[in-house]
């Protein structure tokens, strides 16, 4: 049976991380997606603010995260994946900020990943197609960044995962970096060949894919074994809501407007044996405090359902 994971955000607190991990375990999660991006938020970055969290030395950061590591271990929860702060490059950001993100935040995130025993770290590709004129030119910049952190990934035994993203035009969401599975697969293979190690993989984000109408099954089968981690969440096809799967409908038949059957078929076809990880932290602020545990329990239940569907049937 596939393992089930969920974001640590809104559950695991710095004050008593052990309690959060214990709760997740009780509710049915054996894995966690550690929300490192919570320590330097995109909201701050878009305002050209860099915060001070990553000014800490490596030793200080390890001291800070030691209770998280022991708390997870004690609860029997594995920190399976984490999210590097994003964006890691701001087209309109100051040189100083971009330099800080590249030279300080990124390597320290990698070190934290290693310290927490986390195998996968998800990074966002640069969003520069508008400025540079093409997605290819945009990828070259992302690749340059990935090459800068790849040696560290190799040393720490981590895999960097790029994720399918969206952009926007006139308030309407459009495909962003890594929305072409074929290109992604070729690029990952080439990158790993260059590094002579499997240091790059893919994180498939169901919500982002749904926003730009990607065909889940086709995308997943094209990625194949390059798919390492998942961000499972749902939306109405219009906004990146990070909600519980199966809740959005559009017709009188009231069937899910997100192609979860295609998701299951795709994962089944490639023999996915990773973690069914939910990126659904906003659910926990949407529900009243009294219902949060029930919401998490439902998410875990959905994970088990999807896992059962993926594991059953012929490939």
């Amino acid at each position: 049976m596939l393992e089930i994971g969920v974001q640590s955000k809104n559950v695991v607190s710095d004050g008593d991380p052990a309690a959060g991990f214990r709760l997740l375990r009780e509710l049915g999660f054996s894995c966690v997606d550690f929300s490192l991006n919570g320590y330097l938020t995109n909201t701050d970055l878009y305002q050209n603010k860099r915060g001070r969290f990553f000014d800490r030395s490596q030793r200080e950061l390890e001291e800070f995260f030691a209770p998280h590591r022991t708390g997870a271990e004690a609860a029997g929860v594995r920190i399976h994946q984490m999210h590097m702060p994003y964006p890691i490059y701001l087209p309109r950001g100051s040189e100083e900020l971009n330099g800080y993100l590249w030279n300080v935040v990124a390597p320290k995130s990698m070190e934290i990943c290693g310290f927490l025993g986390c195998r996968y770290i998800v990074v966002h590709g640069f969003k520069l197609a508008f400025e540079l004129g093409s997605e290819e030119a945009e990828w070259r910049r992302t690749e340059e960044f990935l090459h800068a952190i790849a040696p560290l990934a190799r040393e720490l035994g981590c895999v960097i995962c790029v994720e399918n993203l969206y952009g926007s035009a006139g308030g309407r969401l459009t495909e962003g970096p890594c929305c072409d599975a074929r290109k992604a697969a070729q690029r990952i293979d080439r990158f790993n060949d260059q590094c002579s190690a499997e240091v790059l993989g893919f994180c498939f984000d169901t919500g982002h894919a749904n926003l730009v109408g990607l065909d889940f099954e086709e995308f997943l089968t094209t990625l194949g074994s390059r798919l390492k981690v998942l961000h499972i969440h749902d939306n109405d096809g219009l906004a990146d809501l990070h909600q519980i799967p199966f809740v959005f409908t559009r017709t009188r038949e009231n069937k899910s407007s997100t192609d979860w059957e295609g998701f299951v078929r795709g994962l089944r076809a490639i023999g996915f044996d990773g973690v069914l990880n939910f990126e659904t932290a906003p659910v926990l602020t949407a529900f009243p405090e009294e219902l949060r545990e029930d919401a998490l329990r439902l998410i875990a239940r959905i994970g088990r359902y999807l896992g059962g569907q993926i594991s059953s049937g012929d490939r």
């Binding site: 074929r182 749904n210 109408g213 990607l214 038949e253 069937k255 407007s257 192609d259």
Partner: peptide, 17 residues
């Protein structure tokens, strides 16, 4: 594009390759 329960997703020939 193809209709999936009212949501239009990429359909045949929507992959340029």
């Amino acid at each position: 594009c193809r209709d999936h329960n009212g949501h239009l997703l990429r359909g045949l020939c929507s992959d340029p390759a």
